[in-house]
Amino acid sequence: MLRLPPFQYFAPRSLDEALRILSDHGPEAQIVAGGTDLYPKMKRRQIQPRALVSVRRIPELSHIAWMAHDGVTLGAGVTLARVLACENLAIAYPALARACAGIAHPPIRSMGTIGGNLCIDTRCTYYDQTFFWREALGFCLKKGGTVCPVAPGGTRCWAVSSSDGAPVMIALGAQLRLIGPHGERTIAAEEFYRDDGIQYLAKAPEEILVEVRLPCREGWRSTYWKLRRRGAIDFPVLGIAVAVCMESGRCREARIVLGAVGSCPKRIREAEGILEGNPLEPDVIEAAARAVSRAIRPLENTDFLHLYRKKVASVFAQRALHELAGTPLTGGLSGT
């Protein structure tokens, strides 16, 4: 049986207490919420924190609060199952519901949290393996080694941002509230991620993601398409979140964000620009979809060949945009 390495476990009941424990233990400490991403990594000895600081009992993390005409805030500790159970969320933010419904499988969704999903560690076929396997390979740059087997010539880690929630939050213009030892700050979801497989978050280890604020998105349409081999369990190896605001038949504002094709979610501004000011008609959509595929450079470190993922990015971009245009393409399979 794969077992966890020993650790100390803290279950603070307030943010202050949590922050204190985190600063007491410094880099040896690790925040845990649902544990669905962390515990497998600990069992594979990818990370071995000495202290786990659970945020489950902190009341500020567990709310869903609607603000009149100003959107909603979701506590970071709200489980994915709770997000899905909330019909108003699905109506206001269809992309969020689509993304959460496609995460892993039902038990994981009743354990995992929205904050946990946004902070999920980057993934790589060379990294998400047991200690034995990684030792046999000769450890990689992300953990214990000096070379990245994906791109051995380079100096950076190419592990892949594998959150379904991240591209959606960026597309919906979410703001994330963080609290740290030096106070709190709110940053745009887009600023939360860094293009680095190791330091993939702009969050300091001792900062706690407290809540997600989704702005009111009246007049917007949104969706999320996900590529993976099976209809459940699998992480995304391509995720595409699209949100458009339509005004008199034309796209006033668009956001197209790709997940799981690089170390951070990627906004495709060229594609957004193609859509903005135009009606969502087939030729516009096709041009935007081509721009999506052009802008990404997936590597060979997830399921599916990287060129295949690049190709499907444009197919899914088209399908997502047609869906939002109200002219869904028929004959297409997959994409959840």
Binding site: Y9, A11, G35, T36, A81, P107, S110, M111
Partner: peptide, 12 residues
Amino acid sequence: EPVLSCLALPIE
């Protein structure tokens, strides 16, 4: 609710 016992700690 379904929960995976392999990823849950009794203390939680």
